[in-house]
Simulated assay, not measured.
Amino acid sequence: MIHQRALEYLLALEGAALLRSFVEESDPGFGRARVAEMRRLLAMAELDVEPVAVERVSATDGYRVWSRTYDEPGNGLFPAEEAAVRGILADLKPGVVLDAACGTGRHSAWLADRGHRVIGVDGSPDMLARARDRVPGADFREGPLERLPLPDRSVDAVVCALALTHVRDLRPVFAEFARVLRPGGDLVISDVAQEWIAMGSVPRVRLDDGRPALTPGHRHRTSDYLGAALPVGLRVVSCDEPRQGPVVPLDAGAEMPAGGTPVGETGPWDQWPWSLAGMLPHVWQAVTGGVPLMIIWHFQRDPADR
């Protein structure tokens, strides 16, 4: 069981901002302002409440719930992620493309429109049902990333979007990607930056009985991807980390409202951590400015691997 309190998250943000100011240029009053603000937060009785008890559920169970609203209005990462991934895939000649962890088929639809034969694989029957409605001409199959329901060397390209954060060990997944790829085939991966996982950007859902729950969120570092890809014959073509806006000056000018913050402004648990970030926008900007939003990988299977 995970226990989450708004007060503790807000204090953690203040502490993260202090750590950043410890090694970066900052206003001389920045640190004092953060300490004073932490004292004010600690003095707010409305924030001194019992933690929310949160379960950890499997990705399949989480997406069974999330599938109902996944595309409405959609993930805030989608625009930047789609631009990066599709920029790589745009030059591919029409062929057979695997959309691994295809979800509701947002990449499958785009690939099909460009003349590719699309095979979508996902572990969630509920997400697959929506993908089939969205892209009726594609071939959607249920299965885990660690055991893809495809024969060896059967696809020209693989795309896996914003899914590997749910996977603890990347090695069997990359081995499967390499197995189904033809020699010279392309693998394009997007994943949530590990910094954002650490700041609470993990899908949260309400189970059917109303209990709060989080899906798995694993923090993969660059070495984890490379350690999984290189031994199975995948070479790096490119790696990009789109950023969260510019680094902002660390100044002491902006502070939370002097009168304190009403309880309602923390927002419901379902909106955390974003509603909490809204309580301390100046601190949030100081912490997240210049931090990568995601990581985008382009690998290629060795053309000489016959």
Rank of each mutant, 00 (worst) to 15 (best):
P216C: 07
E8P: 00
M38Q: 14
P28Y: 05
G105Y: 13
Q300P: 07
L18T: 10
S275R: 13
T104P: 03
N75V: 11
A129E: 03
Y70P: 04
Q4T: 12
A228M: 02
T104I: 07
I189V: 15
P281F: 01
A101G: 15
M127I: 10
E72V: 09
V202F: 00
R39W: 11
A175T: 06
V205W: 08
G227L: 08
A213R: 05
A84H: 11
A90N: 09
A304K: 08
W66T: 04
D122N: 10
P28F: 04
A101V: 14
E265G: 05
R114H: 11
D113T: 10
V173D: 00
E8L: 07
P281V: 01
R153E: 08
L41Q: 06
G184H: 06
Q285L: 12
V192F: 10
P257K: 00
T69N: 12
S124I: 09
G137F: 00
R106W: 00
M1W: 08
G267S: 01
R117L: 03
Y70A: 05
V54D: 09
L19A: 15
F140R: 00
R206N: 02
H282V: 07
P262I: 01
A129D: 09
A228K: 02
D61I: 04
L42F: 06
V287A: 05
D133A: 09
P246H: 03
R206T: 00
L111Y: 04
P203N: 01
E25D: 14
G200Q: 08
I295P: 07
R306P: 12
M44F: 10
R114Y: 02
P149T: 03
L19V: 09
A80T: 15
D209H: 00
A286W: 03
D126K: 04
E176H: 09
G217Q: 01
P281Q: 00
E55Q: 14
R117F: 01
A157G: 11
P273Q: 11
E14L: 14
L98K: 05
V173Y: 04
V118H: 02
S201Y: 14
D156Y: 07
R179I: 13
S58D: 06
L250E: 03
A157K: 10
G217C: 00
V23T: 04
D113E: 15
D48P: 11
A59Y: 05
A12R: 15
H107D: 14
C102T: 15
C239S: 03
P136D: 02
G217Y: 00
W284V: 06
V205D: 05
R64T: 14
L280H: 11
A36K: 05
H3Y: 14
G217I: 00
F140M: 03
L164G: 01
L18F: 13
